[in-house]
Design a protein around this nucleic acid. Structure first.
Length: 187
DNA sequence: TAAGTGCGTCGTT
DNA sequence: AACGACGCACTTA
């Protein structure tokens, strides 16, 4: 049901994280994988075709706090996948990002469901008006997609732009939020 | 209009 | 030093 994930030494050094809990969130769109550090939700992965690591799961006691966060995250994801704004979210641990990336992710969270914003607008909002392309990189590095709504960031002229998890997901998420997709169908 | 090219710009690896 | 989930000007067809 849940596993305690070993984090590589390199990652540990980078994000100062000793242990991460990995739990599935089954949805009608597939099985998402959530990861929690002691600070909050630190990663959300889209359903993948890849089989889960067969590593033997050590039986560990799931901390009460993690369990509560997971209940909240599960409910929130279900709501978000319907295109609605979750009433409550778990705390986020975005410590894996650089200063610049965190600024971008923070600005991104102000774009509400059913709204969009361009990469250049996001660059401006992040305090680096000319770092438009770097903003794209930061979007791609977003560890908590859906909740940190990188899918609402479009290219100029309302073109779709890119999406790490695949443009189909970006289209789907925007469509569920009621966006007019004919305008943005073309990448 | 649509599609392709080149270049500026800048954070990240 | 090279590479982008970009943007814009500018060329072609």
């Amino acid at each position: 049901m849940f596993r305690l994930v070993q984090v590589s030494a390199k990652a540990m050094k980078r994000i100062d994280r000793t242990q991460v809990w990995e739990l599935p969130i089954p949805t009608r769109d597939g099985k998402f994988i959530a990861r929690y550090s002691d600070k909050g939700l630190c990663e959300l992965n889209f359903p993948s075709d890849e089989p889960p690591p067969r590593k033997k799961a050590r039986a560990e006691h799931l901390p009460e706090q993690i369990r509560r966060w997971h209940v909240v995250a599960t409910e929130a994801l279900e709501t978000a996948l319907k295109g609605e704004a979750p009433k409550e979210l778990p705390p986020f641990d975005l410590s894996s990002g650089t200063e610049f990336q965190r600024r971008v992710w923070t600005a991104m969270q102000k774009v509400g469901a059913g709204h969009t914003c361009s990469y250049s607008e996001l660059a401006r909002a992040s305090g680096k008006a000319d770092a438009v392309r770097a903003v794209g990189g930061a979007c791609g590095a977003n560890p908590i997609p859906v909740f940190v709504p990188c899918h609402r960031i479009l290219a100029a002229n309302r073109r779709l732009g890119g999406f790490s998890a695949g443009l189909e997901w970006k289209r789907k998420l925007l469509a569920r939020e009621g966006m007019d997709l004919p305008l943005v169908l073309k990448a």
